[in-house]
Design a protein around this nucleic acid. Structure first.
Lengths: 226, 226
DNA sequence: GCTGCTGTAAAACATTTGTTTTAAATAAGT
DNA sequence: ACTTATTTAAAACAAATGTTTTACAGCAGC
């Protein structure tokens, strides 16, 4: 009944070490030897348990990203349930979109700073490519949020809405990744807000952005868009 | 009078090759041999002309980032001049902030896609660190824009404004870097807008975000901010 | 024509990388 | 207790990396 030896335990230690190192230095910049050293395992363990480095990276990303996606879907579904068929507020939608980072982070056992950095890296490094396993869920989530937003802001053209959701992604990704950097460059002028405050500020900003007036672009300049 | 041999020419070819490769694959992921091969030069040429890889990266970043910063300052100054001491519109400020990417890009001779990717990498790779030479100018620009925005939106607390400028940065960086990715993931649903359209959409979004109502955060939850 | 300087080219350098191989140790099955 | 499968450990592998060394070519000035 008991699991053979430390197999699962070793895998967990490797993933945990990889988590921390990938977050800090990026996926490509970390060597397998650094990971296994931190995990207290042998170099060959990575290839034995995960196949190769690429598959280890995929595993880390999937384990990191899926819970956030699932929590997003859960929050959105809950909001829908309690609104009795009426369109949900933008704030609720944005909350369901952004808050999961905080929720999952607090349940992850990882340091908050590392969790945030890893989140950013999942969106940034490797050209933002997600492992095949996670793409399906990610696309489904994007569709669900797009559709829900559409119902709340029906006057906004679908394409513009898609772009603004994309922009909102940028806000979150950039904020998660460069909090430290931001702190340095403003010489501390940005303060030291807790995450709840930062979350609310992102929601405020994105809400304003989503609701902004949609400037017509001069057609003479060549709008290729439909 | 003539410069000895092809010294400057070789440097230019290396920088040009590095530009393209760094944009496509990231700074760390490109080897010196790839660069010199594309440039038609010898491996040792990089160390001879630039010292080492790190200094080459710095040179590429500086040459890429400084023109954008300068153009931003120029546009902002022009706007101020033509407003006769009155606060400038947010749209003008955002235009001065974002449009320089397009202007410099069109004068760069590089492919648009590569220029955008390199811009994103300058903000993303290496933890967003800028070379020492560029930090001063960047900070000065940030201060100038913050100050100008402050005059236009005096009712917004300084810290909140700083954060919203940070968010705007995220919008631009993310959009520049992941246009392709966005196209794939929406299955083309985002359309194929030209850059002028995308620019206007970013301005609209950020303007909405900057003007958004500033939600008070529940102090009981522990606002560390001042 | 020699000397010195600048730029180029090829080769060699020591490290580090991901991965495989080989062998030993441990647990489970019968 | 013997066998088998699973997991770990150490060593070896080939390939690639940034950098340095060495040698050679072109051009200047005295």
């Amino acid at each position: 009944m008991a699991i053979t030896k430390n197999s699962e335990e070793t895998k967990r230690k490797i993933i945990s070490a990889a988590n921390a190192l990938f977050a800090e230095k990026g996926f490509e910049a970390v060597s397998l030897r650094e990971i296994t050293a931190l995990a207290g395992a042998n170099v060959a363990a990575v290839n034995y348990h995960f196949g190769n480095k690429e598959q280890l990276i995929d595993e880390v990303i999937v384990q990191h990203v899926l819970p956030v996606i699932e929590e997003r879907m859960r929050l959105l579904k809950d909001s829908k349930k309690s609104s009795n068929g009426k369109p949900i507020s933008i704030e609720s939608i944005l909350n369901a979109f952004i808050r999961p980072f905080l929720t999952v982070m607090n349940n992850s056992g990882q340091s908050k700073a590392l969790f945030c950095k890893l989140s950013g890296r999942c969106m940034s490094d490797r050209g933002g490519d997600l492992p095949a396993r996670a793409v399906k869920e990610f696309v489904a989530m994007l569709k669900e949020f797009t559709h829900t937003l559409q119902e709340t802001i029906p006057q906004l053209p679908a394409k513009v809405l898609l772009w603004r959701l994309h922009f909102s992604f940028g806000v979150v990704a950039h904020t998660l990744m460069y909090e430290e950097r931001f702190h340095e460059i403003t010489n501390g002028g940005c303060g030291t807000p807790n995450l709840e405050t930062t979350l609310q500020r992102m929601i405020d900003f994105c809400q304003g952005g989503l609701l902004a007036q949609d400037s017509p672009v001069d057609k003479m300049k060549g709008e290729v868009d439909a």
